[in-house]
Simulated scan of single mutants.
Amino acid sequence: MFLGTYEPKLDEKGRIILPAKFRDELAHGLVMTRGQERCVYVFANAEFEDMHDKIRQAPVTSKQARDYLRVFLSGATAETPDKQHRVTIPPALRAYAGLDRDLAVIGAGSRVEIWDATAWQTYLAEQEAAFAETAEEVIPGLF
């Protein structure tokens, strides 16, 4: 499970060093793709395969499912970390998420999310108030 927030820097070649706590789970390969809220999702290979299996069960007759699948998979790229635990974020994904030098890499349970540091701080500030004020059951069975 991926947990925590880390602040690596993007180097001049578009690479980041994976946070130490994420390395074992991502060492044998990962898949990066467009995430919602303009971040980059990073999945361990096995998790991505499981997710793809679920997505492809959606009916091909559903336009919404087709649209989601196209956007999600067309931006996907498989990577394997190098010996220094670095991965390259492709230019198209860097542009999609507005990634510059300063990043926020967060653990989101089954995936990692890579955010522009400023965009993450803005998102977090907006969401923390709503999080604190949640008065109803948002996630069934949690509260």
Rank of each mutant, 00 (worst) to 15 (best):
T5K: 10
I16Y: 02
V87H: 02
Y68P: 05
P91E: 09
D11Q: 04
Q57W: 04
F22H: 04
A132K: 12
V60Q: 10
P81K: 04
T77K: 06
M1L: 10
A58R: 12
A129T: 15
V40L: 05
A129W: 00
W115A: 10
R23V: 08
R23W: 05
F72N: 06
T33E: 00
A95N: 10
L142I: 14
M51D: 00
Y96G: 09
E136Y: 02
R66D: 09
D100Q: 15
W120R: 04
S74T: 11
T118Q: 10
D116F: 01
V31N: 01
F48T: 06
E136Q: 13
V105E: 10
K21H: 02
Y96Q: 07
D24F: 09
M1Q: 01
M51A: 07
P91R: 13
R34E: 01
Y123R: 14
A58D: 11
P91G: 01
C39P: 05
G75K: 02
E12I: 07
L18Q: 07
A44F: 05
T5A: 13
D102G: 03
A95R: 10
T61Y: 12
L10Y: 04
I55F: 13
R15I: 09
C39S: 12
A78T: 14
T134N: 05
A119E: 10
E79C: 15
P19G: 04
T33R: 01
E137M: 04
I17C: 12
D50V: 09
L124Y: 13
